[in-house]
Design a protein around this nucleic acid. Structure first.
Lengths: 213, 213
DNA sequence: CTGTCAATTACACAATCAGGTAATACTTTA
DNA sequence: TAAAGTATTACCTGATTGTGTAATTGACAG
């Protein structure tokens, strides 16, 4: 039995060629194809497809919002993104929104069909480039970050700064004078190659020298 | 020219059959095969392979430690895990350790070769089941989009602050007076429930109101 | 059409921050 | 033992930041 499928794609020509591609003996049956997500929930309710192929850039309600809506109401419908966008932000937004796969539009028709099969079988197809991004993401979550040669004391002071303390408050909590704090921060700023507190905080968090939770 | 490759696998039979599989016309050349990672760095230094296939469960130094060592010294060597383990902990530990791919041992020989090719081309091959785990991971770590009701203009100003600009610099870049910037930041501080710039930066980054990259 | 909200500017005052310079003391390392 | 690095304090000066109050404009919603 063919796997039922709905397409969201604002480019009419592409939408039609996809319908064509997936109408042969591909094992799929396109039961709906729409140019945007404005009525996505209503459409899902009526059609109840097994799979959804979702573009991102669409007028009105875009694909990221679309997948959020689908997943919140119909978590069992598998949604794969199909888009030209390969930037970190969009990729990770889609993953967080609940997408089950992420394919770039340079995917060959054969690969596309393979990927949809994989999706139907419970897999999570993604283009190699996307997979790479995902792996890189993890690599960066636990890197033994270079500490910029901050001394333990300096880290302590920096953490207090990051947590929103003024020089005076840091001095109190560290049991030293405000001038000492000032000196430490001056050294810290040099080591981080910044020249004010806000920059230091940004850098400390960005490079995970200090972790907040 | 064949892609050079080293195998770490403690099961002698499997190790040999892999060598066999990858010695034909597969486009690969096995230049080393070892039962554990105890001398991994020395071996990498001598052989300098393009790819490494790494088992996890090995006596002495295991595969996770192995990939960490390789990646810290030779970040350009591509390492793919090849294991029976499909539990979250091991998968994510390997990703964080810097693995470039994660294949389960139920992968067919054909798929294995395909995956190694993908790896050599800079991709990040993983078994469908692993891909699924990864996607699920993101779904569960959905960041709560709390924008604290900042207006677009306020976000703009805040971003400039996060990027280390002083009031004066922000004023220039936004084409407004310093006083306006001051006023905006005052409003921003109230909305974020903070009372100084460093705190605002910390909060903005922590809550991903502003993203740096 | 009227009120609310965003964006804007201005001024004044107090607090805080950042830079430079200098000195002391205590470890650790060469 | 001497040199290097860390931690500490102090003082001075100018720049920056944060708060309060007040007023104007334009846009948008009811």
């Amino acid at each position: 039995m063919a796997t039922s499928l709905v397409i969201y794609e604002d480019n009419a020509r592409l939408r039609q060629s996809m319908e064509l591609l997936l109408s042969d003996d591909s094992g799929f049956k396109v039961i709906g194809a729409f140019p945007d997500c404005t009525k996505v929930l209503k459409q899902m309710e009526e059609l109840l497809p097994e799979l959804v192929v979702m573009d991102i850039d669409m007028p009105g309600v875009n694909g990221i919002e679309g997948v959020k809506k689908i997943k919140s109401e119909f978590p069992d419908i598998k949604v794969v993104m199909y888009t030209v966008f390969d930037d970190d932000t969009r990729i990770f937004d889609c993953l967080c929104a609940g997408a089950d796969g992420y394919l770039l539009k340079n995917t060959s028709p054969v690969k596309l069909i393979q990927s949809l099969q994989e999706l139907a079988e419970g897999g999570a197809p993604m283009s190699p480039f996307v997979a790479q991004k995902v792996f890189t993401f993890f690599r960066n979550t636990k890197p033994v970050e270079d500490t910029f040669n901050l001394t333990p004391r300096e880290k302590e002071i920096l953490e207090l700064l990051v947590r929103g303390n003024s020089y005076k408050m840091i001095a109190d909590k560290s049991n030293v004078s405000v001038d000492t704090v000032k000196k430490h921060l001056q050294n810290i700023y040099h080591k981080l190659h910044v020249n004010c507190g806000t920059e230091a905080v940004a850098k400390a968090l960005q490079h995970k020298i200090i972790k907040l939770d």
